[in-house]
Design a protein around this nucleic acid. Structure first.
Length: 285
DNA sequence: TGATGTGTTCTGCT
DNA sequence: AAGCAGAACACATC
């Protein structure tokens, strides 16, 4: 299962919107160890469950890979899925799984929903945070995020890169530089733009950076569209692979032929992360 | 059983 | 300050 990046998080947000916006939180069972959940200090000793109960889900936003569930009473449930977190919207009778960490019962009017929302996370890296809206933007994980890849203009992107004196690939993964790319889309877009992952960002020509910006935007949009094919099913609420998987050209294709030149794709550690690229099409200089 | 892989973010070093 | 390496996270898999 791939780690969720921007398109996967966007897919989860779409699924959640369909399932839970407008509903009220009836009860919450928190089966998580303390580290998975962070609650505002202003709530004192109130547990996550107590603080959430009775709140209405007004809307849901995405910022980078973060999910922002806007609640009544000017509070926001801020979720980061990290590696293995996902939501499931399942019949209440479905047995609670070992790694279902938080279980939400919702209601519409007086009617209890037939389904439950469950936050599932095998590796428990995912985080749920509950804050008042007034405190939210003081949180490092949100305030330090870079621009949205789908919103940034070409000129702004070129400008950012021209001022970045490190390697392009680690820069793309740096959420304070650009918010939302992960290893898969970084490798794929660099390949399409034929840029070596180790190239110093500021050394790239404007032409190359314009190309990269274009590939980032078209690839993310396409990925969102393909994940979107499952939006209308309950499965769509989780972060499982959508149809985009089969369009990957380099990620997970080590040793296979480059789609441009036929030479083998290599995998190397760059910036302490695995990078997949074609050494012929993506030249170091 | 114990080592390894997994992505992100944090820590600490240069 | 900025860039980078390595650690920590927690589990599954081999």
């Amino acid at each position: 299962m791939p780690v969720p990046e921007l398109p996967e998080v966007e897919t989860v947000v779409h699924g959640l919107r369909q399932a839970i916006v407008g509903k009220t939180i009836k009860s919450v069972v928190n089966r998580a160890p303390a580290l998975s959940v962070v609650v505002s200090r202003k709530l004192g000793r109130d547990s996550l469950a107590k603080a959430l109960t009775g709140r209405r889900i007004n809307s849901i936003d995405r910022r980078g890979k973060n999910i922002l569930i806007r609640l009544s009473g000017e509070m926001t449930l801020w979720v980061h899925l990290k590696m293995t977190g996902h939501f499931n919207w399942v019949e209440r009778s479905t047995p609670v799984a070992k790694h279902d960490i938080v279980v939400f019962d919702l209601s519409e009017g007086r009617k209890l929903s037939k389904q439950q929302l469950r936050f599932h996370d095998t590796r428990r890296f995912g985080r749920l945070h509950l804050f008042y809206d007034s405190e939210l933007m003081e949180q490092d994980g949100l305030s330090k995020l870079g621009p949205e890849p789908l919103e940034i203009t070409v000129d702004h992107f070129v400008d950012l890169c021209r001022n970045k004196h490190g390697m392009i690939k680690p820069a793309l993964l740096d959420q304070t530089f650009l918010a939302g790319l992960g290893n898969i889309y970084a490798d794929e877009t660099l390949h399409l733009a034929r840029i070596h992952p180790q190239r110093i960002a500021s050394s790239l020509s404007r032409r190359k950076l314009v190309e990269l910006h274009g590939h980032i935007q078209t690839m993310l949009k396409r990925a969102i569209r393909l994940m979107g094919t499952t939006f209308d099913t309950f499965e769509g609420v989780n972060g499982r692979p959508g149809r985009f998987q089969k369009y990957l050209l380099v990620y997970g294709h080590e040793g296979e032929q480059c789609s441009f030149c036929g030479r083998p794709i290599v995998r190397e550690k760059i910036g302490s992360r695995s990078a997949h690229f074609c050494p012929r099409c993506q030249r170091e200089r």
